[in-house]
Simulated assay, not measured.
Amino acid sequence: MESIPGNVTVVVPAYNEEKTIEDVLKALLERGYRVLVVNDGSRDSTPEILKRMSSRNDRVSVYTHVINRGLGAALRTGIRAALKEGADYVVTFDADGQHDPDDIERVLKPLLEGSADVVIGRRDFEDMPLSRNLGNTIMNLLTLLFYGCRVSDSQSGLRAFTSRAASLIDIKSRGYGVSSEIIGEIRRNGLRMCEVTIRTIYTPETIAKGTSTSVGIRILLRLLLNIFRKI
């Protein structure tokens, strides 16, 4: 992107990402983005890497959870901080290296054109490892069942929001269930959403994390437990 329109802040939740976080941040900075990292109680060298990078570049902000609070809590902290810092557009971006930073342009385009309030990066399920494919398919079905929203990739970590849309998303989930919750919040607030195709980079690190079949089943059980508690 030759010039960044408005103020785009890329929110990167990070938990024990010492193998990938430096390269991910460098790639984002090289493309001119402001980066806001939420260190979610990492116990490896992630905090030291972030301290070094933020001290050398004023376009890197770091917010820290003293203990690991989960992906949902990290996204909540990051999105709120980005808005407080004056972001016009907020992009969420995984720290494990699975996203192509050049795809940020693709998810921003519908927002800049005024045709959407939120954009979800849609991954290619045919290229996805089987356990991830099944896990994400389960979560797409759960998103439809519990939130009434049919989307192709409810669990994608690459998303873009206008500042108004980001301010309306009320995140309560602490773990991976946050991705489906965000879809539900989009519907609840009547926001315009679209999906655009993105590239996914599969490495041992990216395969080890994310929504596997077992994670999808655990999220289903939590959702059912919450329903029974309300009865």
Rank of each mutant, 00 (worst) to 15 (best):
M1D: 12
G6P: 05
N7T: 05
T9Q: 06
V11L: 06
P13D: 00
Y15L: 07
E18A: 07
E18R: 02
K19S: 06
T20D: 04
E22T: 11
V24C: 00
V24M: 07
L25E: 02
K26P: 02
A27P: 05
L28K: 06
L29E: 03
G32M: 04
Y33T: 02
Y33M: 01
R34H: 05
V35W: 03
L36R: 04
V37K: 03
S42K: 01
S42P: 08
R43Y: 08
D44I: 04
K51L: 08
K51N: 12
M53K: 02
D58W: 11
D58G: 11
R59C: 09
T64S: 10
H65C: 08
V66Q: 12
V66K: 14
V66N: 13
L71M: 14
G72E: 04
R76Y: 06
R76T: 04
I79N: 05
R80E: 12
A81M: 05
A81V: 03
G86E: 10
A87P: 03
D88R: 06
Y89K: 01
V90L: 06
F93V: 02
F93A: 03
A95M: 08
H99L: 14
P101C: 06
I104Q: 02
L108E: 01
P110V: 01
E113I: 11
G114M: 14
V118D: 00
V118S: 00
V119G: 03
R122Q: 09
R123A: 07
R123G: 04
D124M: 11
F125V: 13
M128A: 10
M128W: 08
P129Q: 11
S131K: 15
R132N: 14
R132G: 07
N133P: 12
I138E: 07
L141V: 15
L141Q: 12
L141Y: 15
L142K: 09
T143P: 00
L144V: 12
L144P: 10
F146H: 14
F146M: 12
Y147P: 05
Y147M: 08
G148H: 13
R150C: 13
G157T: 12
L158G: 01
L158C: 06
R159H: 00
F161A: 00
T162F: 06
S167H: 07
L168C: 09
D170M: 12
K172H: 15
K172E: 15
S173T: 07
S173H: 08
R174C: 09
Y176A: 00
V178W: 00
S180V: 04
G184S: 04
E185D: 04
E185Y: 01
E185P: 05
R188G: 03
N189H: 10
N189E: 07
G190P: 06
L191D: 03
R192C: 03
M193C: 14
V196I: 13
V196L: 08
T197W: 14
T197N: 15
R199N: 15
I201D: 12
T203S: 10
E205I: 07
A208L: 14
G210Q: 01
T211P: 06
S212I: 07
T213F: 13
S214R: 15
R218N: 15
I219D: 02
L220C: 09
L223W: 08
L224K: 09
N226V: 13
N226Q: 15
F228M: 13
R229A: 09
I231T: 11
